[in-house]
Amino acid sequence: MLRIENLHSGYGRIEALHDVSLDVSAGEVVALLGANGAGKTTLLRAISGVQPVTSGQIRFEDRRIERMPAHRRVLLGIAQVPEGRQLFAPLSVEDNLKLGAWTRRASDLTADIAGIFAMFPILSEMRHTAAGALSGGQQQMLAIGRALMSKPKLVLLDEPSMGLAPILVDQIFNIVAQLKRSGQTILLVEQNARAALAIADRGYVIETGRITVGGDAATLLADPRVQSGYLGV
């Protein structure tokens, strides 16, 4: 579904991604592990088209998309749950969800919104509340719900557990597992490597802008480099 080949990207003259290659097949959950500043978020931003690419290819369902504007990539079926939620803070929960379906030009979103509320009942109670006034966990749920409203083929999840209390982290990972069971393709960026690899089919480790290890989740869990660097074994 997604194939990235020899991708380079940077901020000004500082290169943040060096020769990154990675692929995600339909129905897979792929984890991308790495420390702060390793380039995880930059890679997701490049896939979504909000970060310029200097060279290399991004293919989505066999179409080259690395020069395509961000809004057209959403139309193709790539949705991102960005780091730090990035909600439309002054707009209501319901409006945030409606805007998530912006590219679908659907006239009636009632059923879709009901589907999101079924997944996150607490959001239903707060449907008229401004998104900026939600708690961190609720904001994360809304960010996930907003991305799902576009009926994406691929979801890019950036650090969904960041800054949340442990009980909420479990809840968010349950949702990711639930999405996986429904067949949703996900590229999951996480610092919580153990939780991410428990859900993922495969994983990659990114270090200072380079993919250093890649393989099945079970293989990665057993890999001594992953164990010492990211699992604290």
Partner: peptide, 22 residues
Amino acid sequence: LFGKAVLATAANKLAARLVGID
């Protein structure tokens, strides 16, 4: 909804681009 997209762009331009608003 277009009016809300204008508000959304004003509130958070990155998020607006990520939900597919031009």
